[in-house]
């Protein structure tokens, strides 16, 4: 059986073509344009060498901060979602009443539009009329009522907290599936040997979940680095760029006509992701049957 005849290449052509034209080529073009002074104000393009990259990394403007903010957002939300997701997964995998109700509830935020979640929390966190502060005042904890999204020192933490609220249930669901895939017999054997709950978790659950945990971390990192909707809805980068992440910054640069700057910081992320992306994809596609 001749494989190239039975499985013709043109079966794959449409998908590969559209993906290449609208995803890969703009990325590669972007790297090229990063070496120019492309803007909305001049019809001419000049080659400027590494000037744009130097401008990003020298720290003379805020560009580097948008990148570090994005990385910080990714690290904090990934850590928190993994830790909380694991905690809830362990609690909700076995021996608990109405577990399907709890699981369904916790998973639900991850099917809703991220933008809508952001808008709802913007209302809840409104300092004057929002539910959170109204509630805190009602139970006499007025001191805790903060200007959640307005206070420069609190805003970024608040944005991350909302995102953790949104994403933990999804990570939990993946980890529950991982825990349920561990054969019961291991836990039974450990219980007979007198292992307590903590020991069972440390010596059985955690090692057996390694692959699933690796995948959830990869998914969280990919999500975090590309965050836009959540920040755009909650603060749009404010107050004073305190919560500015890469994609919100690019959007502003686009509307100001600063194309070269926008494409440069996009390309920094693109190159970074292609390099680490290769290892990430290896983790995601590991364990597949190879004939």
């Amino acid at each position: 059986m001749q494989k190239s005849k039975v499985y013709p290449w043109y079966f794959a052509i449409v998908s590969v073509l559209i993906y290449t034209v609208l995803s890969v080529i703009p990325g590669l073009l972007g790297i090229g344009y990063s070496f120019t002074d492309w803007s909305a104000y001049s019809p001419y393009l000049n080659f400027v060498g590494f000037k744009n990259f130097i401008a990003v990394f020298s720290g003379e403007n805020d560009y580097i901060k948008y990148i570090t903010n994005t990385l910080w957002f990714t690290v904090v939300t990934t850590t928190a979602k993994t830790f909380l997701g694991l905690l809830f997964a362990v609690a909700l995998s076995r021996n608990i009443k109405i577990k399907n109700f709890h699981r369904g509830m916790l998973y639900m935020p991850s099917v809703l539009p991220i933008l809508v979640t952001g808008l709802v929390f913007k209302s809840i966190l409104n300092p004057k009329t929002g539910f959170l502060n109204t509630f805190l005042r009602a139970i006499g904890l007025e001191v805790l009522a903060q200007k959640w999204l307005v206070d420069p020192n609190l805003a970024f933490g608040t944005v991350m907290a909302v995102d953790i609220w949104r994403g933990t249930g999804y990570i939990m669901t993946l980890l529950i599936a991982g825990i349920l895939a561990i054969p019961d017999i291991y836990f039974e054997a450990a219980a007979i040997d007198g292992a307590n709950a903590w020991q069972r978790f440390k010596f059985i659950t955690l090692p057996m979940l390694r692959q699933t945990l690796a995948v959830t971390i990869v998914l969280n990192v990919i999500y975090g680095l590309k965050i836009f909707d959540m920040v755009y809805a909650l603060t749009n980068g404010g107050p004073g760029h305190r919560t500015e992440v890469l994609y919100t910054a690019v959007y502003k640069m686009m509307s100001k006509g600063l194309y070269a700057e926008g494409t440069t910081i996009s390309s920094v992320l693109f190159i970074f992701m292609v390099i680490i992306g290769f290892f990430m994809v290896k983790i995601l596609t590991k364990d597949e049957v190879v004939e």
């Binding site: 794959a12 034209v21 995803s23 890969v24 990325g27 494409t263 996009s266 992306g277 290769f278 596609t285």
Partner: peptide, 25 residues
């Protein structure tokens, strides 16, 4: 080619040049 396509799950969109591509098309 499969790896090339699957890498798309990771790579970010460059909206600046995507805009240019969309206008051109």
């Amino acid at each position: 080619l499969y790896m090339y396509v699957v890498l798309g799950m990771v790579i970010p969109v460059n909206y600046v040049t995507l805009t240019k591509t969309m206008i051109t098309l």
